[in-house]
Simulated scan of single mutants.
Amino acid sequence: MTARRRHFSSRAFAALLIGAIVAQCAPAQAEGVVQLPAAAVDPAVKAKRATAILAGGCFWGVEGVFSHVKGVISVESGYHGGSAATARYELTHDGTSGHAEAVRVTYDPTQLSYGTLLRILFSVVADPTLKNRQGPDTGSQYRAAIVPMDAVQRQVATAYLAQIGKGKYFAKPVVVPIESYKRFYPAEASHQDFMRRNPSNGYILRWDAPKLAALKRLYPARVRAKPAP
Rank of each mutant, 00 (worst) to 15 (best):
G95E: 07
S140W: 05
M1T: 14
P128W: 03
R6Q: 07
I18G: 07
T92W: 01
R133E: 09
A84Q: 13
D208V: 00
M195V: 05
Q141Y: 02
I53G: 00
G32K: 04
E63I: 00
I120T: 06
A50L: 05
R154D: 12
A159G: 12
G61L: 00
Q134H: 08
A144D: 06
K131P: 03
P210W: 08
D127K: 01
L130P: 03
P136T: 04
R119P: 14
A209V: 13
D94I: 00
F59V: 00
A44G: 05
A221M: 14
L215H: 11
A209H: 11
Y107H: 02
E76I: 08
T96D: 08
R49C: 03
R217S: 15
S97H: 07
H93S: 10
T158Y: 07
D150C: 03
G81N: 09
I18L: 10
P229G: 09
A3Y: 13
G98R: 04
A28S: 15
L118F: 12
A28M: 12
C58F: 00
T92S: 04
I73M: 11
A87K: 03
P136W: 02
K46M: 13
G64D: 03
G202T: 01
Q163C: 07
V34E: 13
L212Y: 08
G202W: 02
A47E: 15
T110P: 09
G135Q: 00
V147K: 01
P136Q: 02
G165M: 14
I204M: 06
V105M: 04
D127W: 02
T110H: 07
R222S: 14
R217H: 14
A30Q: 10
G167F: 09
A39D: 06
P186M: 07
D127A: 04
G32L: 05
V125F: 04
E101S: 04
L112D: 11
Q35N: 10
F59D: 00
L16G: 11
G115F: 05
A221W: 13
A221R: 13
N132L: 02
R196G: 12
A221C: 11
A87C: 09
A84W: 01
T138N: 11
V45A: 14
D42G: 08
P43I: 02
V41T: 10
Y219F: 15
Q111W: 05
I53K: 00
M195N: 02
L215C: 08
V223N: 11
I164C: 04
N132S: 12
L54S: 06
S77F: 08
P229M: 08
Q111Y: 01
G115Y: 05
R104F: 07
L16E: 10
Q153W: 04
V152G: 01
V45I: 15
A44M: 08
V75T: 09
R104Q: 15
T158P: 10
Q35V: 11
A44S: 12
I146R: 05
V33E: 10
K70P: 03
Y169G: 06
A187K: 00
R222W: 13
I164A: 04
G81P: 12
H7N: 12
Y185Q: 06
Q192S: 12
S74M: 05
